[in-house]
């Protein structure tokens, strides 16, 4: 029910809006309301920021249990605009301020990294690799 399916010459492209991603994992938006209509095709799940920095694709959803400033900094360097925190990790005010300053959305879910990723994968969000 959530994804937008687009048929292209290269096959089917599935876009999920951030608001639908958050709904899919029973999550909550913390900051970055202007991103709710962002259309996202790929997700990457990791708690290791150096792994995230190897990703060349832009505008992916970063799914992570790392709730600290380093996650925001890594997203900034990697041109990632949307972060989903898992395992009910709530960001500090400092982290929220930083995300707002850099125009990055922060959401959270109580689900584990595995469950959140699996639910989004089932809905059509593609892996980076």
């Amino acid at each position: 029910m959530y994804p937008i399916v687009i048929h292209t010459v290269h096959g089917i492209l599935i876009l999920m809006k951030l608001k639908d991603i958050i709904a899919c994992v029973d999550g909550h938006l913390i900051c970055g309301e202007s991103h709710l209509e962002d259309e996202i095709t790929r997700g990457f799940a990791s708690d290791l920021m150096s792994d995230v920095l190897t990703i060349l694709e832009d505008d992916i959803l970063l799914i992570t249990g790392l709730s600290n400033n380093q996650a925001i900094r890594t997203a900034e360097m990697s041109d990632i605009k949307n972060i989903l925190l898992v395992r009910n990790k709530k960001p500090s005010q400092n982290m929220i301020d930083m995300a707002q300053e850099l125009n990055i959305s922060l959401s959270y879910t109580s689900y584990s990294l595995f469950k959140a990723s699996a639910l989004l994968f089932n809905e059509g969000l593609k892996p980076v690799y």
Binding site: L48, S50, D51, T54, T64, L66, N68, Q70, A71, T74
Partner: peptide
């Protein structure tokens, strides 16, 4: 802190 994956210098090289 999310670092220390042993990817720093390899990422730099890449």
């Amino acid at each position: 802190l999310g670092y220390g994956a042993g990817m720093g210098l390899p990422n730099i090289k890449k």
